[in-house]
Amino acid sequence: MYDTINFYHHDKALDLSSLNQHLEKVKRITDEETGEWLYSWVKIGDFKFQFGMNWLSATGSLPRLIYPDNTFMLSREEVQKCIETLSDKLHFDMNNVNVTRIDVAATFSMKHPVKLYLDCLGELQSFKKCLSVEDETLYYMQENEKYLQKLIFYDKLCQSLKRYKVHPKGVKGVNLLRYEREWHKVLPAQLKEPEVKGRTLYDERFYHKIVELWAESYFAIAKRKTLVDDAIGMIRTPKEGFYYIIAKALQILPIDFVTKHITIMQEYGVYSSPNSYSRLRAMFREIQSQANIMQETELMRELNEKITRVLNNLKP
């Protein structure tokens, strides 16, 4: 499930200068005037390491250490193998190094073009939604001074052919939807952990927790819904008829139509009370939540099942 991992460690008691003698193809950066060693960098698999006297940083894709591309999903045991491989080749124990970024991701072969699934994903509370038209990627972002979190949905086949000129080998198919969940910066506070280090990544409890958070974030996103086939036959009152007509109209509008127009109303200061906007949103949510006439689209049911299957595979 892991993909990109960033490490950063700083300890005044460390002396990492000896790594220069142990590593092959290491590039030393020195002061042009004094010749003093400043720092070094070296590539180990997909990872780029940089280190100075008492600090070390690294970034790279864990699955690319042992697989051709990042569409292969690492087991917990394989994660441990990756950390051990990095430690052996670097000649430094990566188990004790702080992790400053975690990406959890999975790629799914879908029945329909990826864009159709992206069109069904709506708002996520506390996250800003942004669609990049150029590369057809859907972002959800949450950021402040202490942390940055992202959810990303995109066409993995399109990205791989554009960036690497190859078809990813881990998942077969032509409609490859990738969902990534990223945590950056101060991870212990965000993940409510005493520490997040190299060894934490393959800890069984933590591994299950991070995958469950990945899934929970997806299920928290508002999804496009559609009317059940016999919805019109369920209408008994004028209010139900009103709900039916509005729901019918929402099906043919972009999923963010209501949210965008409420935002415009806020910009114009239509209501004097902020609660009025919340009440307006709640009125539309009430329509979407009519369980007797509304259901999730076939596209969302398909993606829901694939996300759930990943969770089920965690069980012993």
Score class of each variant (00 low, 15 high):
P238N: 10
K225P: 03
D229A: 11
I255P: 10
D256A: 08
R224W: 03
D230W: 02
K248F: 08
D256S: 09
R236F: 05
A231E: 05
L253N: 06
D256Y: 03
A249T: 09
R236Q: 13
A222R: 07
I252F: 09
I221L: 03
G233M: 00
P238R: 12
D230S: 10
I246D: 02
A220P: 01
M234R: 15
Y243D: 15
D229T: 10
V258L: 01
R236T: 11
L227K: 07
A247G: 10
I221Q: 01
T259K: 11
I252R: 13
Q251A: 09
P238L: 12
I246K: 05
T226G: 02
F257A: 10
A220R: 09
G241H: 02
A249R: 06
I245V: 15
F242K: 08
K223R: 07
P254M: 05
K248H: 11
A249I: 08
L227C: 06
A231Q: 04
D229S: 10
Y244Q: 03
I232S: 14
I245Y: 03
Y244T: 08
A220Y: 00
Y243C: 13
F257T: 07
L227M: 08
K260V: 13
A249D: 07
T237A: 14
V228N: 06
P238W: 12
I252K: 14
I232Q: 14
H261M: 11
G233C: 00
I232P: 00
Y244C: 06
L250V: 14
Q251Y: 04
F242N: 06
I232W: 07
A247C: 09
Q251C: 07
P238I: 12
V258R: 03
D230V: 07
E240R: 15
R236G: 06
E240W: 11
K260I: 13
M234T: 13
G233T: 00
M234A: 13
I235Y: 00
V228H: 04
P238C: 11
I246E: 03
T226A: 05
V228P: 01
H261A: 07
M234N: 12
T259W: 05
P254I: 05
Y243E: 14
Y244G: 03
Q251R: 08
I255C: 12
E240H: 14
I232R: 13
A249H: 04
K225A: 05
I246F: 02
Q251V: 04
F242P: 00
F257M: 07
K239V: 11
G241T: 00
R224C: 02
V228I: 12
K223H: 04
V258G: 02
R236N: 08
